[in-house]
């Protein structure tokens, strides 16, 4: 069963992302800060990464932790083409703007997990 790491400081958003993916056969890991994310980073098969965290910028975290074998999907409330480009340059495979529908999240996650396998 693939493991999804949700890196997001809003507890309710983590809950809602989990609920959106509840019909899928995934297990979840959750991190509210960059420091927590760093601990769980290597255990995930796919990472949903909020770009604005309380202790660090999501893109800085990405650069600091280096390339991951798991695909990383950037998540942000502030969508600009510039930010999307920066996320892709930093190593993200995709980009989601909050709020997104449950099916958008499901399809994005599914797509990148099947691309991996």
């Amino acid at each position: 069963m693939p493991t999804i790491l949700i890196v997001e400081d809003e507890e309710d958003l983590r809950l809602l992302m989990r609920l959106s993916l509840s019909h899928e056969p995934y297990t979840f890991l959750e991190a509210a800060t960059g420091a927590e994310a760093a601990e769980l980073w290597s255990r995930a098969d796919l990472i949903l990464l909020d770009l604005r965290l309380p202790d660090t910028d999501g893109l800085d975290l990405l650069r600091e932790l280096g390339p991951s074998k798991a695909p990383i999907i950037a998540v942000s409330a502030y969508s600009t083409d510039q930010l999307g480009r920066e996320a892709m340059e930093a190593g993200c495979v995709d980009y989601l703007t909050k709020p997104f529908t449950a099916s958008e999240l499901v399809e994005t996650v599914r797509g990148h997990l099947s691309a991996e396998s």
Binding site: L13, L15, L19, S22, P99, F100, T101
Partner: peptide
């Protein structure tokens, strides 16, 4: 505001079980 919109999207899913519905 963004979390509220996200919750509305999740609640719009009519296949959601009662427990998940209450959580959202």
């Amino acid at each position: 505001a963004a979390v509220i919109m996200q919750a509305a999207h999740v609640l719009a899913d009519d296949t959601l079980g009662t427990k998940d519905h209450d959580a959202a």
